[in-house]
Simulated scan of single mutants.
Amino acid sequence: MKKVIHRAADRGFANHGWLKSYHTFSFANYYNPDMIHFGALRVLNDDSVKGGMGFGSHPHDNMEIVSIVLDGALAHKDNTGRDKVINKNEVQIMSAGTGIVHSEFNASKTDDVNFLQIWVFPKHRNVAPRYDQQAFDPADRHNKFQEVVSPGEESSKLWLNQDAWFSLGNFDEGQQFAIKPKQAGQGSYLFLISGEATIGEDKLSARDGIGIADYDTLTIDVTKPAEFLLIDVPMIQ
């Protein structure tokens, strides 16, 4: 088994006043040669944006982007005419493909919005740009994982242009669960949104992440009520 642990306190951090952003992997002005990506998982940013503020229009191409709102609401506009709000318990995917220009703003004038933005390298380059979003009932992830993103357009859930799966889970203290690779050559990245858990001798706290590859099954013990994001990706170099 290959394992890497990213501690919350070791993440990159940028404070722009209106934006506080923590970077699990190298991003923008934060560069750590040991934290470039985990397989196809390229970016995991933990962003908080003040009321009335946001990111102006900016381009993306050839990247699969997933936005998960943890608190508040995020407004999204783009050059295709899309104008949507992503609320808590909603997930948005964006296949940037050949290129798209969009903006993201706090939908509230007063309250902060906190969201995770995750980038995944695409399986195929220069595809047609595509957006989608969906609401998920948190009751369906109590003491189990709720799959919210999967590969291939035949999926009934949100889908990406990559062999990647995203799952959310809320577990009570004392619960134990196991994870295993989705398919051969896959690795799993477990991000602890809140709470505490142990994996063998490793203790994880809020906003810690652990990446595991070349494994069969891994058991996690929840030591304080915990919320997890599990990302399964190909272990590309």
Rank of each mutant, 00 (worst) to 15 (best):
203 K>H: 06
159 W>G: 05
208 D>A: 02
132 D>E: 06
226 A>D: 07
165 W>V: 10
207 R>P: 00
155 S>T: 06
170 N>L: 02
148 V>L: 09
165 W>T: 03
160 L>M: 14
187 G>S: 12
213 A>G: 12
183 Q>T: 13
173 E>N: 08
143 N>K: 11
153 E>W: 11
204 L>D: 00
170 N>K: 09
155 S>G: 08
182 K>M: 15
187 G>C: 08
194 S>H: 12
170 N>Y: 03
155 S>M: 07
155 S>A: 05
148 V>C: 08
199 I>V: 13
195 G>K: 05
154 E>V: 03
196 E>P: 02
146 Q>D: 13
203 K>S: 09
201 E>L: 05
178 A>T: 15
164 A>M: 06
229 L>R: 03
194 S>N: 15
198 T>I: 14
193 I>P: 02
157 K>C: 02
192 L>T: 03
204 L>N: 01
229 L>G: 11
171 F>R: 09
226 A>H: 02
139 A>M: 14
210 I>N: 00
199 I>P: 11
154 E>Y: 11
186 Q>L: 05
223 T>C: 04
155 S>P: 15
204 L>K: 01
213 A>F: 06
192 L>I: 04
142 H>F: 06
181 P>W: 01
199 I>D: 12
219 T>V: 11
202 D>Y: 01
209 G>E: 01
187 G>W: 05
191 F>A: 00
207 R>S: 01
177 F>W: 14
184 A>H: 13
150 S>M: 06
168 L>S: 00
227 E>Q: 14
227 E>N: 15
143 N>Q: 14
173 E>R: 09
193 I>M: 04
167 S>D: 09
192 L>Y: 00
184 A>I: 15
145 F>A: 04
152 G>Y: 14
225 P>M: 12
196 E>C: 10
189 Y>T: 01
176 Q>H: 03
216 D>Y: 07
134 Q>A: 12
206 A>H: 00
163 D>G: 08
156 S>Y: 01
206 A>C: 00
200 G>L: 02
185 G>N: 13
223 T>E: 10
199 I>C: 12
201 E>R: 08
165 W>N: 06
146 Q>W: 02
229 L>Q: 04
215 Y>M: 08
169 G>D: 13
163 D>T: 10
194 S>T: 15
223 T>M: 03
137 D>K: 09
166 F>N: 02
194 S>L: 13
170 N>R: 10
208 D>N: 08
198 T>D: 13
158 L>G: 08
185 G>P: 05
176 Q>L: 10
195 G>V: 12
213 A>V: 12
178 A>F: 02
220 I>G: 01
210 I>S: 00
185 G>Y: 10
133 Q>K: 13
201 E>C: 04
147 E>K: 08
215 Y>L: 11
184 A>T: 15
212 I>C: 12
209 G>F: 01
145 F>G: 01
144 K>D: 07
175 Q>R: 08
188 S>A: 13
212 I>L: 13
186 Q>P: 01
214 D>G: 09
181 P>M: 05
201 E>W: 07
145 F>W: 06
159 W>Y: 14
185 G>T: 13
218 L>H: 12
229 L>A: 09
158 L>I: 01
214 D>S: 06
132 D>N: 07
139 A>D: 11
